[in-house]
Amino acid sequence: MAEQVALSRTQVCGILREELFQGDAFHQSDTHIFIIMGASGDLAKKKIYPTIWWLFRDGLLPENTFIVGYARSRLTVADIRKQSEPFFKATPEEKLKLEDFFARNSYVAGQYDDAASYQRLNSHMNALHLGSQANRLFYLALPPTVYEAVTKNIHESCMSQIGWNRIIVEKPFGRDLQSSDRLSNHISSLFREDQIYRIDHYLGKEMVQNLMVLRFANRIFGPIWNRDNIACVILTFKEPFGTEGRGGYFDEFGIIRDVMQNHLLQMLCLVAMEKPASTNSDDVRDEKVKVLKCISEVQANNVVLGQYVGNPDGEGEATKGYLDDPTVPRGSTTATFAAVVLYVENERWDGVPFILRCGKALNERKAEVRLQFHDVAGDIFHQQCKRNELVIRVQPNEAVYTKMMTKKPGMFFNPEESELDLTYGNRYKNVKLPDAYERLILDVFCGSQMHFVRSDELREAWRIFTPLLHQIELEKPKPIPYIYGSRGPTEADELMKRVGFQYEGTYKWVNP
């Protein structure tokens, strides 16, 4: 592979701008107003304001973009700056750019259920340069409990009458099928589907988006991507930290609602779906819905739930269990780990287990898709061969690698495990991989909904998990304890083995 010439960040961002501006969906010269509902909250200060700053800094926003914060707290732009700027990672050389960014910011205080507050917000936006005809993007960085009041008031008082209007809704989209349907029906009564952007930030990850290209742009994968060759698929999300004093919020939802029903299920769809007619948003989402419709409700015998306990040999936070978090209700049975087996009941995947695993306070930070292939028929190497695996590593250190057998150097035919490896950090030294939120917010500006969740996708996802969630809430089974920093409950490994996964433990990928 030829040595790549190092590029400056300015040059890299210039390439990104060229890609972005050559499309006809990006209205570079139009006025846009980006409204952050819930501007005083954690999500706004840690993710949304920093993301908008990065896009502005790199010249990736339309030229005439204004940012308006809205929340109940009586704040000023200076207050917003004070709480969000520490997350910007701005350099001293960017000081003038930073001043320009905050000059485009404003803030309006108001209630979430008060019509007069929204009329005041609308008047404020109209007073901005060309504000009355601007395109408006409303980001709901809010708890779902206020979605209905907020969307109703936005629709009645704050819509642009000339430009387009788009609304970005953060997960969780309800707690179960019934609450999700209620919320979807409410929002759909106010906005068209092409105006609604239900954001799952995992769909903005580079390697998640790469799944489609790997599958449908490489001839070698087509013939082997089926039940005849693939023994099982494992989708993993692991965090090495616990709730760390923020367990009160987590306890309301648990690990299945927080990660599995959305992030992991979306990745499953991209692995299992048929080739779409095109890369058009609805063509892709149509195929994802077909996959979900082929999955039956989760069966309790295919589920393992766990909850982390303190590690007596650990240090600091590792010595504390979930129930030691003062914000967690006493005696909570909320799971911090889950392993679930699903089956896609169609011709391509009949009988292939899709194993979804996620948890907190585990032994490493990792998100990946792992396809394990069947054993080689007619073994001539005296059971020395391990199964081939194709691994798409989402985070950290984005990579695609194939675990395969090669001859060990020497005189004899002794096979050993090795890999074919594409590590993004080595291959793409001159490429700026956008943060997931950067990519998705740019998608909203461009009107691309491919990486957002459609209402029928959402409904099918909740259909699969709601009976299990209701059973857990009714019966309150005690989750299996696992030690902070471990791989999780051993019962999860036993479940995976029972459905056909072979864990060798003899080879570990190392970032080159």
Score class of each variant (00 low, 15 high):
26 F>I: 09
44 A>C: 09
163 G>V: 05
233 V>Q: 03
72 R>A: 02
26 F>E: 12
36 I>A: 01
41 G>D: 02
185 N>S: 12
162 I>Y: 12
220 I>C: 12
131 G>E: 12
194 D>Y: 08
25 A>W: 14
254 G>A: 05
247 G>I: 06
163 G>A: 11
84 S>P: 03
233 V>E: 01
167 I>M: 14
69 G>Y: 03
65 T>M: 10
113 D>V: 08
176 D>W: 03
42 D>H: 01
103 A>D: 15
95 K>F: 09
169 V>H: 03
86 P>I: 08
239 E>S: 06
165 N>L: 11
250 F>Q: 01
62 P>Y: 04
237 F>S: 06
147 Y>Q: 02
23 G>I: 15
45 K>P: 00
61 L>K: 02
6 A>N: 15
183 L>G: 03
129 H>T: 14
203 L>T: 03
157 S>C: 14
6 A>D: 15
85 E>D: 07
93 E>Q: 13
225 W>H: 05
216 F>N: 01
234 I>E: 14
236 T>R: 01
244 E>C: 15
156 E>V: 12
60 L>E: 07
9 R>K: 15
105 N>A: 06
255 I>R: 01
48 I>D: 14
85 E>K: 07
81 R>H: 07
162 I>H: 11
136 R>N: 12
115 A>G: 14
19 E>C: 15
237 F>L: 09
139 Y>M: 08
25 A>E: 15
20 L>Q: 09
39 A>H: 01
248 G>D: 00
25 A>P: 15
182 R>L: 14
23 G>H: 14
186 H>V: 11
199 I>Q: 07
255 I>L: 07
200 D>M: 01
175 R>I: 08
103 A>K: 14
45 K>H: 12
31 T>M: 11
213 V>C: 14
243 T>R: 00
151 T>C: 13
49 Y>M: 10
85 E>R: 05
33 I>E: 06
32 H>R: 12
62 P>G: 08
18 E>C: 07
143 P>L: 02
151 T>E: 00
113 D>C: 12
23 G>T: 15
152 K>P: 00
248 G>N: 06
170 E>H: 04
106 S>I: 12
57 R>E: 03
140 L>P: 04
134 A>C: 12
184 S>H: 06
25 A>R: 15
235 L>F: 10
167 I>W: 05
56 F>C: 03
183 L>M: 07
161 Q>E: 14
143 P>A: 07
16 L>V: 14
145 T>N: 12
217 A>S: 14
149 A>E: 15
220 I>G: 03
226 N>T: 08
58 D>Q: 08
170 E>Y: 01
23 G>Y: 11
18 E>N: 14
156 E>K: 12
240 P>A: 07
186 H>G: 08
78 A>N: 14
255 I>D: 00
29 S>E: 13
208 V>M: 13
76 T>K: 13
184 S>V: 13
86 P>D: 09
56 F>H: 06
106 S>M: 09
163 G>K: 15
253 F>S: 10
233 V>K: 02
145 T>D: 04
134 A>M: 13
231 A>S: 13
142 L>F: 02
103 A>R: 15
238 K>E: 00
255 I>E: 05
128 L>Q: 12
179 S>V: 02
6 A>L: 15
17 R>K: 15
24 D>Q: 05
187 I>G: 00
167 I>S: 05
143 P>N: 08
199 I>A: 02
37 M>V: 09
10 T>V: 10
44 A>T: 05
115 A>D: 13
153 N>C: 12
12 V>G: 07
239 E>H: 04
200 D>H: 02
172 P>V: 00
83 Q>L: 13
123 S>I: 15
118 Y>C: 06
21 F>V: 14
113 D>Q: 14
94 E>I: 00
211 L>T: 06
220 I>A: 11
170 E>A: 04
152 K>C: 10
109 A>P: 11
34 F>G: 01
202 Y>G: 03
98 L>D: 00
12 V>I: 15
17 R>Q: 15
14 G>L: 09
108 V>D: 02
186 H>T: 09
121 L>N: 03
177 L>M: 13
143 P>F: 02
21 F>P: 15
